[in-house]
């Protein structure tokens, strides 16, 4: 085993990180008398962990400022949400990474059927072991809503439009932070708090109310549907459908988003509260 630099048969050098932030750099060489020596060098590269810990504690006491000035403690739903379960796909074979996509969605689809389910995020682990437990708990406190942090792991569409209402439930405008402006096309009379709304867009002009219900019915019980129309009855291109349960809504989103309908590709997502969109 040649090292290239020095004479053969010297062991390889090594670098080892120590607990207090220093590194031990070990190398071997021949001294003037030709004897093999081991040289251990202590290097300070990393930070002092003790000092670091104290500083972190201090900063926890910082008051929020600037755009966060009026935020309460904990994450604010406007700015922070926990996304759906998304794997870091690891593989020893780079080719597999290309092909692994359906498997990932498959996995999240299967989460529905596993026995173990986290109360907060719906992932396949015990609630007490939930990695996002803290965040979701604080989110729940912030929004004042209880219950599971959204069954966001349905038939395979991670990251798809689970809007800023990160808990996943439909939050009526009156209960939301920020604006209380009515959402387009919603009658304020009927209480839709307990239902789950999806917004379908890119519908063809000649879509009728019946078509809309027909489209949505396979996924579950349609509590209410609203098709946006012009005065002459031509469809404006989008519609809202309220389902009885979140499962139904998620299924609808899974199947209809990207669905080819009369030569158009539909979009389908959770209906979001009105606010400036991040894109």
């Amino acid at each position: 085993m040649t090292t290239g630099d020095s004479a053969p048969q010297l062991p390889l050098p090594s670098v080892h990180a120590n607990k207090n932030g220093t590194y031990t750099h070990t190398l071997y060489k021949l001294d003037d008398q030709g004897r093999k020596v081991q040289v251990k060098r202590i290097l300070r590269i990393g930070r002092d962990m003790e000092v670091s810990k104290r500083a972190i504690e201090e900063r926890k006491k910082w008051a929020k400022f600037g755009a966060a000035k009026h935020h309460g403690p904990g994450p604010d739903t406007e700015t922070t949400r926990v996304d759906t379960e998304l794997p870091l796909r690891l593989s020893t074979n780079p080719q597999q990474l290309d092909a692994m996509e359906p498997a990932a969605e498959e996995a999240s689809r299967k989460l529905k059927d596993t026995a173990i389910k986290c109360r907060y995020c719906g992932g396949p682990h015990w609630s007490k072991e939930c990695p996002s437990k803290d965040i979701i708990q604080s989110l729940q406190e912030a929004t004042g809503l209880g219950g599971p942090g959204g069954d966001d792991a349905p038939s395979g569409t991670p990251g798809l439009g689970a809007g800023p209402s990160g808990s996943g439930r439909y939050v009526p405008p009156s209960l939301r932070d920020g604006t209380g402006a009515p959402r387009p096309g919603m009658e304020m009379g009927r209480r839709m708090d307990d239902t789950y709304a999806v917004r379908i867009a890119n519908l063809p002009e000649d879509t009728t109310d019946a078509d809309l219900i027909e489209l949505a019915r396979p996924f579950g019980h349609v509590v209410r549907s609203y098709l946006a129309k012009y005065d002459d009855g031509t469809c404006k291109g989008f519609a809202f459908v309220n389902f009885a349960t979140m499962d139904m809504a998620e299924r609808a989103i899974a199947k209809l988003h990207g669905y080819g309908y009369a030569n158009l590709i539909l979009t389908c997502e959770h209906s979001k509260p009105r606010e400036p969109k991040p894109m």
Binding site: R47, I56, A67, T79, T80, R81, L86, P87, P131, P278
Partner: peptide, 25 residues
């Protein structure tokens, strides 16, 4: 893994950085 999505920008991001202690981004 459940990524946390931080929405604080309305236009593309140019830089993200951690501080030396890592508690702030």
């Amino acid at each position: 893994m459940r990524p946390i999505v931080c929405q604080g920008h309305t236009r593309p991001l140019t830089r993200v950085r951690y501080n030396r202690d890592g508690d702030l981004m």
